[in-house]
Design a binder for these strands. Structure first.
Lengths: 302, 302
DNA sequence: CATGTTGATACTCTTTATATATCAAATGAG
DNA sequence: CTCATTTGATATATAAAGAGTATCAACATG
């Protein structure tokens, strides 16, 4: 069953006149006669009753007409959906993120994206950086907010944040009110760390900060989520070294104190597959890039 | 947008492998590549991501796939509906009838038809014989149960009933209990008649029955519906001469008495347009014809 | 580095669709 | 009643599109 024949049928069913229908279709009359005949053969029954002076729909033709209309409508719908996905108006954007990104500019990017593409949806998955890299390369994720140790094959990335570390102390801690402390004064504290499995980069960075100051931290807890870590500190169960952005959590019971000469930074990245052609992703990358370069630092709360 | 391309797209989306998909489609691989390329041009965006070792759907292709499936499904549906209408399984049968036919075998035919074609629907319109003939010739009705004065151009018909007339008297009438009466004894009664406008054949027949007996009936009421006529008789407002089948109404207050030597019959017909090819009508004509010739006289109540 | 995949391309041939010209049947005007 | 006109169907030639064969470049594998 060819689509052209359906179009011919629809027009003829509306005109009930071969020559007029042919004119509307911008073809000559004979091919129309032939096409209708072929359609009737395929269905196995006449669709029109012809006399030299009158063309009318048979009951079969009358039943077929609305169905033919639906086919054409469905076809337009399919084309339109595909084109809207292609233009980035519509579609699904799968993004990974490590929890800390919620304290950086990620929510701002999401809000801008929603405003720019109200028909599009976003699926967020909280994953470690390593898992994100795997998922992005396999195509499971379109992009991710993560920490990259160095360049990764196939991935492009943007630097979202370059932050130094601050100490995260319970408010009850004697140093909680200090302006700035040396890392060394924390040598006898017990440390709450992100699990090395989840975030090896963070783990190693903290270890190296301490090592530079001449001690190896005593680890009381290794946790898998940043909220857990901060809460443990708030409960007085340890201290932590965290990127500065965590100072924005607003959680009670914790204080953040500048570290003297930490000299080690936390790099936050936005990364995606270089070869991807997903239009929504391309738009999102543009959005992130232009927003970052415009150096607007306001944070949208949602 | 050609349908074949859609089929190709669907198979390729499922196989994600040009050669396998081409094999499943029973074509060679190059035309498949070309067809997909054309489809992509029409949509305006790539549907597949190709590498020498891996074919995968782009987001556009993934969004297009279920829509393409729906198109094909809708197409099958359209074809199937048309074919079921063609086979008479499905469709609409528009029938006219004059009221009295409900007391003849018309309900039986309808019941048989419903049993034979449970998916088909029937639209019934109570119309005078003349209106039915016009509607059948114009195609508004497929057929009708009516009284035909004689052969009608374009129409075929079957004789459904050939009944003599009986007298319809109020139960309170002195002759109500009689076995048989002469028409002449009704000469001083007042007659309830079907309107000549609605049913000229009936009107003229009754007049001629009376005329043969040497009188002209006094008409008290002309009514448009058989129920009205019988009810008026039941209320004692007149008598009527009616085809025998009306004795089956079961209404209280009326008695039916045989007429001696009425010699005039009421012919009930089933008529349809000779040139019609509506499969449901053809089935129904067959049904009526075979049922009539099988001489089964039982009436189905529903 | 040779070999066997993959999908894309070039070219030919067949099929299909279309247009022009024409026909038979029916209608309407004179 | 006759002739011109209109209807949809048909015949034939031409142009477009589809499919097949052969081949290519890119990549993976041993």
């Amino acid at each position: 069953m060819e689509l052209r024949r359906l179009q011919y049928f629809i027009v003829l069913a509306e005109e009930l006149h071969f020559r007029r229908a042919a004119a509307r279709l911008a073809i000559s009359q004979p091919p129309l006669s032939i096409a209708i005949k072929q359609l009737e053969e395929e269905i196995g029954a006449p669709l029109f009753e012809r006399s030299t002076k009158l063309v009318s729909l048979t009951p079969v033709g009358a039943a077929f007409y609305p169905e033919a209309l639906r086919i054409v409508a469905q076809l337009d719908r399919a084309r339109s959906i595909a084109q809207r996905v292609a233009s980035g108006e519509r579609g699904v954007l799968r993004l990974g993120f490590v929890g800390g990104m919620l304290l950086r500019r990620m929510p701002e990017f999401l809000a801008l994206h929603r405003r720019a593409h109200p028909e599009a949806s976003v699926i967020l998955r909280e994953l470690s950086s390593g898992e994100q890299i795997r998922s992005i390369r396999s195509g499971e994720l379109a992009a991710g907010f993560l920490h990259m140790g160095g360049p990764v094959e196939e991935l492009d990335h943007l630097l979202m944040a370059d932050e130094d570390f601050v100490a995260c102390l319970p408010s009850s801690h004697p140093l909680a009110g200090a302006e700035i402390v040396k890392v060394k004064v924390l040598r006898d504290e017990r440390f709450v760390m992100f699990s090395r499995e989840i975030s090896p980069g963070y783990f190693d960075t903290v270890i190296s900060i301490c090592a530079r100051e001449g001690f190896s931290p005593t680890i009381s807890f290794e946790v898998g989520h940043w909220l857990t870590a901060i809460l443990l500190v708030a409960k007085g169960l340890g201290v932590a070294l965290v990127p500065r952005c965590f100072a924005n959590t607003g959680l009670r019971g914790v204080s953040f104190v500048e570290l003297k000469a930490a000299r080690t930074h936390s790099l936050a990245h936005f990364a995606w597959k270089r070869t991807s052609s997903d239009p929504l992703l391309l738009r999102f990358v543009d959005l992130v890039r232009t927003t970052l370069s415009s150096r607007v630092n306001k944070h949208l709360s949602d």
